[in-house]
Structure formats: C-alpha cells, structure tokens
Design a protein around this nucleic acid. Structure first.
Lengths: 334, 334
DNA sequence: TTTCCATGCTAAACCGGTTTATGGGACGGG
DNA sequence: CCCGTCCCATAAACCGGTTTAGCATGGAAA
C-alpha cells in the first residue's frame, strides 16, 4: 500500500508488477520495483499465503528417539541441502521433531496439513510397512519419498542405491581374505535397515560364502556395542563385521579394542554414512559415503515441483560409494 | 464456516469459542467444539496469522560451514528441545540453514522479519562481536540469546555455565599429576571458544601451573588432528590436551594412537559436548556434558514469552558437568 | 468517422480467520 | 409497567496481499 502510493499506482498494480505478470507497462513496473526497493518492502507471507492458498513452506517431520538425535549425521546435512533449494524459491522449512511414537508423528502431519502450514512434506526414514502413505493421501498433502519405499508409492521419490556400496564393501572384505563376515543391522522395520542387510547377504551369496551371524541392533552406540560383544563372545567370532551405520561401527570398534583385539588384524570393521569423524578415528573407518546434502537438495526440488502442480519425475541419485580406510585389512591366518 | 453452520451459529461465535473468551454460553461453546471435532476442523494458520498479525512460528538461523554440519551433536538435540516447547503452544519452527557467510546470514534474518514469517528468533552461537544485535533490533524482531553474549544484550538470554565444567576437568587432570596441559580451542570469535579457553587458563593459574601450549583450531576433525600433530611434535609435548569440543578431541585421540602413543598413559585427552559416541570409543572419552535439549526447551519458552509480550527473565541453566572416562589417567612418571 | 480490440490500470471482491460495533432477549429495580 | 443492564450472539469491518471485472485510452480496421 505504501509502495503503491509512492509509485502512484493502485495496490493491484503493485501485485502485478511484483509477480511479473502481463498488463503492466515496463516503465510503470520499474517505478513500482524502485519504490519497493527504496522502502525495503517485502510482501507479507501471511497475506500472500492466505490469498493464494499456499503456505510457501514445506514440512519435515523428524521422528527420532531422543538418544539418536545427536548421533545422526544425515539429518543436519540433509537439511542443509533442502535449504539450499528452498532458499532459491522463497519457501521456508517448517521442522517438527517428534519422539519415536506413531501417534505423535501422525498428529504432527495432521497439524501441518490441517492448519495449512505447508505445501508438502518430506517422507524420510521409509518404513517397510509405512502407514504414512495412507495418512498423507487422506490429508491431501503432497509429499516426496526420501528413499525407495518397500511397496508401491503414490508420491514421487528421490532414491539412492545404498546396496551397491554395501556389496562392494563386502567384496572388499572377501578380497582381503575374510570368510566369516557378520552383519549388525539397524532397527527392524526401516527400509534402509533391510536393504543393507539384504545387500550384505547377497554379496556373500554371490561369492558362495556362508553368511556369518546376523544381528539386529538399533543404530545407536550402545546397541552396536552390545551386538559386537555378543558376536565376539561367540564360539567362532567373525573376522569382519559389517555395520548398518557408522555409529554402531565405531562403538563396535571401541568394544573390540577394549577387549584387546587389533583392528583390523583381529577384526575388520565397516560402517555406513561416513560421519565426519570416521576418517579421524584410530584406525580410520572404512564406510560408505552418502551425499546427504545432495539428497536433500534433490528432494526439495521435487517437492517444490509437486507443490506447484508441476510434473515431477522420480530422481535416482548416484549410488553411495564405499570409502576404504584402515579399519579393514587382511585377517590373521587361521 | 462449516463448523459455524453445523453448530447453528455465526463464524464469529466459533472464533470466540475456540479461543475461549467470554461471551459464549457454556452450552453453545460445547456445541461448537463438538461440531469442530466431528468435522476434524482446525483453524487455518494462514488466516489466523493474517488477522492476528502473528506468525505462530519462530525462526532459527543455523550458520554453519557445511563440513561442520553433520558433526555437531548440539544442533539436533537443541532442536528437539525447542520443538517440545513449541508443540505445546501451537507454534512451529522455521529453520534456515546458511553457510558461514555474514551476508547470507543477515539476509536470512531480514527475510524472516520482512516477510513476517516468524514472531521471534533464536540467537545461537554467540559471537564475541555480534552484529546480529543491531540487525535484529533494527528489524524489530524479538529474540532470545542462546548463551551469554560477550557484551550487553538487548534480548533476554538463556545461559549455561560451560566454564565450570572445563575448570573441573583441568582440576581432574592436575589431580592425576599432569603439569603440561595443552588446550586446543575452536574457531576464534565465538564466545564459547573464548570462554572455554579462559576457563582452562584460569584453572591452571589457580593451581599455579604454567599453561601449556594453546592452539586455535576450528571445531572440526581435521582441525583437531592438525593441532594435535603440532602439539605432539613439539619439543616438550604435553601429557594432556583439553579440547574445546569432542570432535576435535576424538580426532586428536586418533592422531595420538596413530602415532603409537597410549591414551591415557602417554597422553590424556578431554573433550566437550559428550557426543553420543564419546562413551563408546576406545578409550571412552572424558568430556563435559551439555544438556542441549534442556537448553533448547528453555530458550523456546523464553522466546514464546517475549513474542507474546509477556515479561521474560533471563534463565541460567545448571552448569555443564564433566564426565570422567578412561581417556584421562595419570601420566607416566618423567 | 465509427467500430473494435488490445493495452494499462483501477476498484472491489476474496482468502478465512479475528475483532468491534450492534442488536435482541431476559431479568431486576424503580 | 417501563427502563436500564447484562448476557449472548450476530453482522460487518479488518488483516494485506491476489485476482477478477470493468473502465479508459489509443491505434488499427472497416
């Protein structure tokens, strides 16, 4: 309104000029833009959201047990990638953090949709049996799947092949001479838990090697440590352990070293994620690197597209690559 | 409107009932609330925000170099705490992630304020010379300082004494017999960098021990590793190193072990933060525990208060406590 | 010259709540 | 019996943009 007066036009004209749509003379447009710049005026997202029926924001519901929150390197990097895409289009990110609780998570989505706070949401941490699909479809909330769901998916998805990285890691261990290669998985029910386990199993099967013990843990340090203790105390301990993430791998390595084992001499260890610390441990950790930022960026772009009604294709990002470091080496001869 | 029709009242009455203000007969109110429940109706935040001139959201601008993002355990836990407080009051969190860039950060605040997206912001990672005070004051944006600023602060603050934890850690090292205790600090310019350094120096001075070498690093793994290498290659290497955060401490421990040193026999190491992995390393890391979630929760409560015009006092949280683990022990006799 | 249409702009309706001004009914006091 | 209050509830204005309908104006076509 101030801008309109200053430029000597109606507020409608200001709106036209700012959203550069036809029907405004170039000279008038310049005058309006100049006035806006001089007054440092920015359109109110509140008013804009109401009249356009768009929130100009997207939502991310992080469902995490509190103890997992600080340990996960994926989350902040993913957010950074998301932001880099959103910032370019003037959207904001509305973040919700809920505990590991179905009800709380569903309520969170319901609030975001019901109150019209967001134009779409990210669906991360895909579950094998994911109720969120129905929920979001029922709410009419656009979404993008971050990762490949187990079943059919009504939303576009942005995926990364994490299996290949695990397969190549196992092949690396096999090449070093390992034959008793165990696996410590993450929380049951997550797609990325089961896909990494499947990849481990598949790589061993392809080489005709019997799979070693296969434990289910929970992605946490204590969980990884407990699983490792169980493995090492077994009758025939493995010479290598493949963990479903770095946190468990690092904790497992801590257990092994604490027991007086040499890593990698007595036990080789591999993780998944390539947390920033992985390269700086003693020994540095062999792991699989994920480009969380790139993932976030791609997911945000797809989500913005569907939110604006543009067609959105699925995106397949480059596969996660293994990074070989000193936590893996040849086993001692029997 | 649907709710109004169903309850047989005007939409004004619905508004009164939902914000439980006087002037609605109890019986009518019940009828309205029942209708809303049956229809699963929630008021549109968009419309509400416009008419009340409130955003029902608060903002957090994370300024971080990308490589630091995944390593910092503070950030996600802080967010979780923030959320727990916001959820109770129906506010949302708008998150912005920007690189380590003055301009980008300032623009981010300007957008949040100018577009009316938030009712207030968190001011985290306080700088010794912090331009954000003037910026936010100029924008008229309420804020809460997360941590004690170096100078006077126009905003309420939520602080934690981190010095005491460092002092007690140094005293612990002194008690074990260490006399050459070095310090590896974080990025210059942050208040928590300088306060931890000051605490280290103060504890040594109080004991009449000359401060060991004092290096400036950058809170990252590579930075901590490089500083550690420099210290250990010196003429008279320290018997203990106090790091300003866990990431550097862990990387430093990796370097020491890589050089064939015993930790803690040849070198004791302490960190700050108590990252989830700290307890599971080999050896487990002595560090200082911060209650990031509690901090986030307290900060959010203060911010909501100032945003609603309620008086908000400064909050001083319980000091961060040292956690003594096996990365510290008596030095070898000379 | 008249007719027609494209162009450039304005006035007013609209988004969906909140808030204010106003109206109607019951009740108590004079 | 009438009037003043109090209590409820409604209609209408409002928040600050976007969008539609409509009104001039000027140039081209008839």
């Amino acid at each position: 309104m101030d801008v309109a007066r200053r430029a000597g036009v109606s507020k409608g004209a200001v709106s036209f000029a700012l959203n550069d749509r036809p029907g405004v003379a170039p000279e008038t447009r310049d005058r309006i833009l100049a006035a806006a710049r001089e007054l440092g005026w920015q359109p109110s997202t509140r008013a804009r959201a109401l009249s356009r029926s768009r929130a100009y924001a997207v939502g991310l519901v992080m469902r995490r047990a509190p103890e997992l929150l600080g340990a996960d390197p994926f989350f902040p990097q993913f957010l950074a990638g998301v932001e880099s895409a959103l910032a370019e289009r003037g959207s904001a990110l509305v973040l919700q953090v809920v505990g590991d609780d179905d009800q709380a998570e569903a309520d969170s989505y319901r609030r975001l949709a019901g109150q019209g706070r967001v134009d779409g949401v990210f669906l991360n941490d895909m579950l094998v049996d994911d109720h969120r699909f129905e929920l979001l479809a029922g709410l009419g909330l656009p979404a993008v799947a971050v990762g490949r769901p187990a079943g059919p998916c009504p939303f576009p998805m942005v995926t990364v092949d994490d299996r290949q990285g695990v397969v190549r890691t196992v092949e690396h261990l096999l090449g070093l001479g390992h034959r008793r290669i165990a696996f410590v998985g993450g929380t049951e029910g997550y797609v990325h838990s089961s896909s990494r386990r499947a990849a481990w199993r598949q790589a061993l099967a392809a080489a005709g090697v019997a799979p070693g013990p296969d434990l289910v843990a929970d992605f946490t340090g204590p969980g990884g440590a407990a699983a490792t203790r169980a493995l090492l105390e077994g009758a025939q301990p493995p010479t290598a352990i493949v963990y479903a993430n770095d946190v468990m791998a690092i904790a497992g390595m801590g257990v092994a070293i604490g027991l007086g084992l040499q890593v990698p001499g007595d036990l080789s260890v591999t993780g998944f994620d390539d947390v920033p610390l992985a390269a700086h441990l003693a020994p540095p950790l062999t792991t699989v690197r994920q480009d969380a930022m790139g993932w976030g960026r791609a997911a945000a772009e797809v989500l913005l597209a569907v939110g604006e009604g543009r067609p959105a294709d699925d995106v397949e990002l480059p596969p996660a690559d293994p990074v070989f470091r000193a936590s893996t080496g040849p086993p001692h001869p029997e």
